[in-house]
């Protein structure tokens, strides 16, 4: 089974984000990056399916040159090879043209299964996998916690709201968007890191794939959110803060 895993490199979660001078994006100086969290779970699911059913895991990532570190991490964890759509200005693409770009690369591979994360931590549109499926004419299912492979078909466990789940059967090839927490993530081993250096990373560009950015709706302005609630901040040393809070809990909240 050939499994394609779409992964995105995003700024590390704990970063302190500042809007850049133009008000268009975040200030990227001093940022460190990581694989988008649900994508790490998508990769994990892909690797497990390969271990059970054989085949190949191909990582697909669109991003600037620096995204190569995310790709190498995926290879070190066990992906067999990777495709890097190198583009320095992903922000110019609306969600549809980004989906078309990934679809063009995916089409050439004709995979049996495409896995994406359900949502990116930076843009967070939560759409790319579904768009990819529609562009490729494939069936899809979203917010996936578990994947079973049967002859020519899939049975997946979807997460619904409020703690409900549902199994859905669908034919292959298909696109699944994977939820965090679906399995325990592996670490890259030293051996894996060494092997990764010999694995193929195919670098392509959007023009080579025959796609161009479109601006159906792109980010025009980025800002700090307006704060409407007046939180009472308790100041001082940790001891003073704790004492002030206990005071509030006792006399105002009556929780003690």
């Amino acid at each position: 089974m050939k499994i394609l895993v779409a992964l995105k490199q995003v700024p590390a979660r704990d970063s302190l984000f500042k809007v850049d001078a133009a008000g268009r994006w975040i200030d990227t100086a001093d940022l460190s990056y990581e694989i988008n969290e649900p994508d790490a779970y998508a990769l994990e699911s892909g690797l497990r399916l390969k271990e059970q059913h054989g085949g190949e895991v191909v990582a697909l990532c669109a991003g600037p040159e620096g995204a190569a570190s995310a790709i190498r991490e995926a290879l070190a964890k066990g992906a067999d090879r990777a495709i890097h759509i190198q583009d320095d200005n992903l922000l110019a693409y609306d969600s549809l043209s980004l989906g078309r770009m990934l679809a063009a690369a995916a089409r050439a591979e004709a995979p049996d299964l495409i896995l994406t994360g359900l949502q990116s931590d930076d843009i967070g549109s939560g759409q790319t996998g579904v768009i990819l499926a529609e562009v490729l004419g494939l069936p899809h299912a979203t917010i996936i916690m578990d994947i079973e492979v049967h002859d020519g078909a899939l049975r997946v466990k979807r997460e619904l709201e409020d703690g409900w789940f549902q199994h859905v059967a669908l034919p292959r090839p298909a696109v699944l968007t994977v939820q965090s927490g679906s399995s325990k993530l592996r670490y890259a081993t030293l051996m894996g890191i060494k092997k990764a250096k010999t694995k193929e990373i195919k670098v392509v560009s959007a023009p080579e794939l025959g796609v161009a950015p479109e601006a159906g709706a792109v980010l025009e302005r980025l800002s700090l959110p307006e704060r409407t609630k007046r939180t009472v901040l308790l100041e001082g040393t940790p001891e003073q803060q704790a004492a002030a809070l206990v005071e509030k809990l006792k006399h105002e909240v009556r929780a003690l």
């Binding site: 931590d121 930076d122 967070g124 980010l219 302005r221 800002s223 959110p225």
Partner: peptide, 10 residues
């Protein structure tokens, strides 16, 4: 965007 840390206009 960024899990609620920033807001974006489209």
């Amino acid at each position: 965007l960024f899990q609620g840390k920033l807001a974006g206009d489209y």
